[in-house]
């Protein structure tokens, strides 16, 4: 929303991988591994996307909500901020910040529809309470930049608009990881264009060269994303439940 990413708090708050991949001590004490930590965040990103689909809000709201959630978990533990409550709350807050509001009771309704598991059950009051905690944890910085806008601009510039659908989908998938906390959005967009062009066997070498973007970063993002697609095949519901179960244990 802001006119200038480089002057934004989003830019100023970009983190290093080592800062993002930290399991905070309350969670560590419960035996949560880094892998499980990432797994839960991925699962909750999917959960946010599913809820958003039922409520019918824009993709941008989903992206902002996931970003909020991931930011919160760089500062707060899952023990303190139950992921099953934080995820829908972030969606609720993001809907306000992105001007696509829906009512809290609608959210609660779809949460119930989505999961029979009572561990996922929350009332309006819980959401509103958590909303305040999220706002504080985010230090009221609510503006998030996403790769979608640069993506379309870049594709237009490259004259490769036929890659839009594929690369757009790839951008959606980047939210299953913490890229948005670590890289400027246009870099993420470039990586997705890069993967899409390789998959569709388009030669983009000249275009990328002309951009003078840091290709090392672009390739790093691309490799990580591709690794993720490989590893995702072995992710099962059981592993996620096991990880969430650990959080419920007394330390």
């Amino acid at each position: 929303m802001a006119a200038n990413f480089w002057a934004s708090s989003h830019y100023k708050q970009l983190l290093e991988q080592e800062e993002v991949d930290v399991v905070l001590s309350p969670d560590k004490e419960k035996g949560l591994t880094l892998e499980e930590f990432k797994l839960i965040k991925m699962h909750m990103s999917n959960y946010i996307a599913k809820l958003a689909q039922s409520i019918k809000v824009r993709q941008r709201v989903v992206a902002t909500a996931i970003t909020y959630m991931r930011r919160v978990y760089t500062r707060k533990s899952m023990t303190e901020y139950d992921p099953r409550l934080l995820a829908p709350t972030c969606l609720y807050l993001a809907s306000k910040a992105e001007e696509s509001t829906f009512q809290a009771r609608l959210l609660v309704f779809y949460i119930k529809k989505q999961y029979n598991d009572e561990k996922y059950r929350f009332e309006i009051k819980d959401i509103l309470e958590m909303e305040m905690k999220v706002l504080e944890a985010l230090n009221y910085y609510l503006v998030v930049y996403h790769p979608y806008r640069p993506l379309s601009q870049l594709l237009q510039d490259a004259g490769m608009t036929e890659l839009t659908q594929l690369s757009w989908g790839l951008v959606n998938d980047t939210y299953k990881m913490d890229f948005i906390l670590m890289y400027p959005p246009y870099m993420i967009a470039l990586a997705c264009i890069y993967i899409a062009s390789v998959l569709k066997e388009k030669d983009t070498t000249a275009w990328f060269e002309e951009l003078r973007a840091d290709m090392n970063v672009v390739k790093n993002i691309s490799m990580e994303l591709l690794d993720f697609y490989d590893s995702q095949k072995i992710i099962t519901e059981e592993r996620i439940s096991a990880a969430l179960h650990k959080l419920a244990l007394k330390p």
Partner: peptide
């Protein structure tokens, strides 16, 4: 507060630039 219909790009960003900040800081 609730009813602000209309999708569409809100708040356009023109500040994205490839290859580094392109505005005068």
């Amino acid at each position: 507060a609730s009813g602000m219909p209309g999708p569409g790009p809100r708040g356009g960003g023109s500040g994205y630039g490839v290859g580094g900040p392109n505005y005068s800081q």
